[in-house]
Nucleic acid binder design. Sequence first.
DNA 1: ATAAATTATTAACGGCGTGAAATATTAGCC
DNA 2: GGCTAATATTTCACGCCGTTAATAATTTAT
Lengths: 210, 210
Amino acid sequence: MSIGDGLVDSGGRFEDGSVPSADLYRFLRSGHVLRSLLREFLEEDFLQQVCRHRLTRSQFCFLKLITANSDLQVGELARCLGVSPAASSKNLDRLERLGLVCRETSGQDRRAILLKASADGVELVRDYESLKAARLEPVIDSLGREKTEQLCDLLEEVCVAMLARAENPRETCLRCAGYYRPDCAFERLQGKCALRPRRGDGLDETGVEA
Amino acid sequence: MSIGDGLVDSGGRFEDGSVPSADLYRFLRSGHVLRSLLREFLEEDFLQQVCRHRLTRSQFCFLKLITANSDLQVGELARCLGVSPAASSKNLDRLERLGLVCRETSGQDRRAILLKASADGVELVRDYESLKAARLEPVIDSLGREKTEQLCDLLEEVCVAMLARAENPRETCLRCAGYYRPDCAFERLQGKCALRPRRGDGLDETGVEA
DNA sequence: ATAAATTATTAACGGCGTGAAATATTAGCC
DNA sequence: GGCTAATATTTCACGCCGTTAATAATTTAT
């Protein structure tokens, strides 16, 4: 498992003297708790409930993107996920060894490898999403429709504001973790979506986080 | 940099047939975008702006916790961050090599090593938090106080609901990423807070994510 | 026909985690 | 006081995961 991130030193000062205000502090606090909780769905403990192999986060993300967009190439996959082709190739080695993915030489270009998820791989991803939904549906139900809508409105507003100020535009944006929507406000701000279907596969709702 | 997480396969079914509802889908979408954006504050690109060494996320988190709680032991640090003592020791090797942390044998027990951040280490952490605050204060300002309060209320409610259903209680909870508050609702649900000051140091607002 | 570019893989490296073993020290028990 | 068990940390060997650079095969451009 990996470890965490931001601490606040309330005494610290930068050249413009900024210290988190009470509002910002509270936002960071609850924002980070949510981040941590959502992240737990990619820890090996959770993944182990849908896969008999010990699947790592990285492997799972590769698998998810392959499942969502069939016939990606190794290099495309690498660009989508923001890693090098070498890293892509090695992760695919491991997924192949687990029988979750297979490589096929492209008919059109013998250099190119097309990637497909195996039946096991597809099932694993499906089971994962079902389990995740089963875990979280009661949470949303308990919050209620009106509050959920309000929360999502506010989250979107704050994310757009953050993204508008982000400094490193990405070539591809997978920030939604694959909870894709065609009219994505985030995509318009930065980075085309790696999840936008490329071949009219009909898979409109897929996802991976970069 | 590391890569992403959850995709949704809208056609998938688990034994109880759960598929994300539209509400859950939207929540996951915006929740993951926020998670991704907050996470970018721990990427090497951001860390590089406050540190001339190339500091990794892991190293930074170790440093942050050491800064927040002086005189932690190697084993305590490991438990707080949910890693093994061996991992703790090695990360400390690297931080020591960078001059950001030092080890001191405890006066009371010669087996125990007490950890301290150097002046450089403390300054780095301070600069980090100031830069982060400088980046995010305008976001919160643009949202406005009332909406920020509303957003935080809703975030806290949903996080409590998620935590109430979490299955793997942690020995220590650092989910707030160190944006600590003495009356923590999350701490009451699960895992004592690793950030609660242990020696009355007066550092009430500190943090790391586990 | 040739050179340049592209695609994927491999090698070497460092970061980061693990469990097991080793070493030094302290605590508990007789 | 002596001995055993427990504790604290470090080191080792390993695998995962990323990088850059080099390589080989193939396609594209000239």
